Amino acid sequence: MSWLVTGGAGYIGAHIVRALTAADMSPVVLDNESSGRATFVPEGVPYVRGSILDTQLLIDTMRAHEVVGVIHVAAYKYAGVSVQRPLHTYEQNVEGTRVVLAAMEEAGVSRLVFSSSAAVYGTPDVPLVTEDLPKRPASPYGESKLIGEWLIRDQAVATASSDAPLRHTSLRYFNVVGSSDPSVYDVSPHNLFPLVYEALIEGRTPKIFGDDYDTPDGTNVRDYVHIGDIAAAHVVAAQRLAAGQPVEPAYNLGSKNGLSVREIMDAMARVTGIDFTPEIGPRRAGDPDRIVATGELAARDLDWKNRYTVDEMVRSGWEARRAAG
């Protein structure tokens, strides 16, 4: 028996795969390598190259590997770019989730951990985001994740009286950073940490996208959470589902104490030893002022903790990126 990780060759998915392996939960990876890399998949882990839009491939993979649950990470995750590519975003994230659910039903797989996003909240008007806060996504990406949660909820209702009722939970988080394995690093061309790393490696000055937000220093304030903590929470959620233990429909994996982009830049200079003054560029579409979540429910049920300081997060990501050459 095994757990299928969609998007398991990506930065987040590959860390989840390693955490599942450490917990003896036999991961299987399915990834189309649109942003993932086959080299991120650990040796010995079954790897299927293909798309989550391929229903039959999903069914065949689940049956061949006796999959008992799915951790659905695969998605097009760039909030800003989703404003320019809404149709592509909906195809990958909404239709992709629908296909995963359909394949699960056909294959008799009834446990699902959905990798959602704090983007479902949009721009909250409260200091700390809780799971019951109204959902007002500010981008097609955030909307697609919220619709994904709705699809999962509705499928659970539809299968409640079946032989394999869907049991599920969604994990909402925002900026995932750092590395727990020097062979895996964030390759995104849009995320803050890799953008800064690439600029520093190439001798360029890192850029801040907007300094006129409604925050203390004018730059975005976010939860920055270490990938090791994120992966661990996914594993505990899967374990609770496998054991038939109760779970909430959704959990925020939040830091409770947000960091601004300018604070991250200061940490980058401090950790790397490269002194710089960031350039200021225009805002990116779809970027809200502040999103910081409490994480209290996840701490209660998923052993959620923030185990890393900002300098440790920066250092682990920097060392992994430099190790890649």
Rank of each mutant, 00 (worst) to 15 (best):
A119H: 13
G96T: 01
A102T: 02
Q92I: 13
P246G: 04
I227E: 05
R290M: 06
L58A: 01
V235R: 11
R307F: 03
V187Y: 02
D289L: 00
D163M: 01
G295I: 01
D303Q: 15
Y141N: 05
Y197L: 09
S183R: 05
Y76T: 08
A298F: 04
Y173T: 02
S26M: 11
R153F: 08
M268P: 01
R240N: 11
L87V: 11
M268Y: 03
A238T: 01
V271F: 06
I227H: 09
I16K: 09
A231P: 04
K305M: 13
G36N: 03
Y173G: 05
D287P: 06
V157H: 07
D287F: 05
D303V: 14
V120L: 14
K207N: 09
A243F: 01
D211V: 14
F193K: 06
R270I: 05
G122V: 02
I52D: 02
Y121R: 15
F193G: 04
P42T: 02
V17Q: 08
P137H: 03
I280A: 13
S2T: 14
N257K: 09
Y308E: 07
M313N: 00
I291A: 11
P282Q: 00
L259Y: 10
H15S: 02
G178R: 00
L30H: 04
E263I: 10
G80L: 00
D212W: 14
A38K: 09
V126Y: 00
G96D: 04
A243P: 07
